[in-house]
Write a protein that binds this DNA or RNA. Structure first.
Lengths: 148, 148
DNA sequence: TATTGTTATACTCTATAACTATA
DNA sequence: TATAGTTATAGAGTATAACAATA
């Protein structure tokens, strides 16, 4: 019985799941030299893209509980990478923005992540990477509403 | 500054990571009705594919610490889905196999997972799904050594 | 000496509930 | 009444270290 892998083990879904886990590890590894986790890098990237984001907004973007965001932003604020300012039109909210150090670090982190991604995808040519990106974009478009 | 998303947020790597996380959640959700986690389903699937697998083998396949496998197999054995037999040629090892109930449940779980996958990929046509599978297989081939 | 499986334990990550300040 | 942010805390998931049995 069974020298063939069960169908699930060669399915799109399983390959997608495993590729995601590996990509996550590769991102974290590539960012550790800059003192960032993948998650912290994403916070910097979202805040750069949409300055004045609130912690609630960030919570939805990252798919994390708002209580997690508190510590995440605390840590980045302690390192003077992100700053909080009260929203004058709704003083419950914070408007988050990058400091110049945060802006600088985000750029370097983005370059590191891009190199790591390129290495991870080294089995694919440029056209294949574009094709993969288009397919994933189509699948995820309505699940990540902030995508263009 | 920045009404464009930071490049990382539209990159292949990030889309891959997020698609993996969503696929994971969709698998878990689809299997919960059968009383299985995604991880338990994978154990059943690997054991079916390679009967006589040891717990160490499973540890490598799943990328989990061997101490995690103990509880995982315990739980499946308690439910009479998997059985342990000592390897006569190396009595330190267990040879794992599916019971007939385990075999039956694995089949039903595989059908459920396949339906969930199909729904997750509903933005793609059949040819696009095949293309996605081929691209992911190419990327993951040397990272998942048991793949054909 | 090294490896397989096991237990105990400590550590990290996460969500829940309860609070405050604002709306 | 409802929402944004915060704190404390309990639960789940994880790896590390130490062990017994076997090689």
């Amino acid at each position: 019985m069974g020298s063939e892998p069960a169908p699930v083990l060669t399915s799109v879904g399983y390959l997608l799941l495993k590729a995601g886990v590996h990509m996550h590890a590769v991102f974290d590894e590539s960012l550790s030299a800059l003192g960032l986790t993948g998650r912290e890098f994403l916070v910097l990237s979202f805040v750069r893209s949409e300055e004045g984001l609130s912690q609630q907004d960030l919570s939805r973007r990252l798919g994390l509980d708002p209580t997690i965001i508190v510590g995440l932003v605390d840590s980045l604020e302690d390192r003077a990478l992100v700053s909080r300012a009260r929203d004058p039109s709704d003083r419950r909210r914070y408007l988050l923005s990058l400091t110049s150090a945060g802006d600088d670090l985000q750029r370097r982190a983005e370059a590191a992540a891009r190199r790591a991604e390129a290495e991870f995808l080294d089995g694919l040519g440029d056209a294949e990477r574009s094709r993969l990106r288009a397919l994933l974009h189509e699948v995820m478009r309505h699940r990540l509403p902030w995508l263009p």
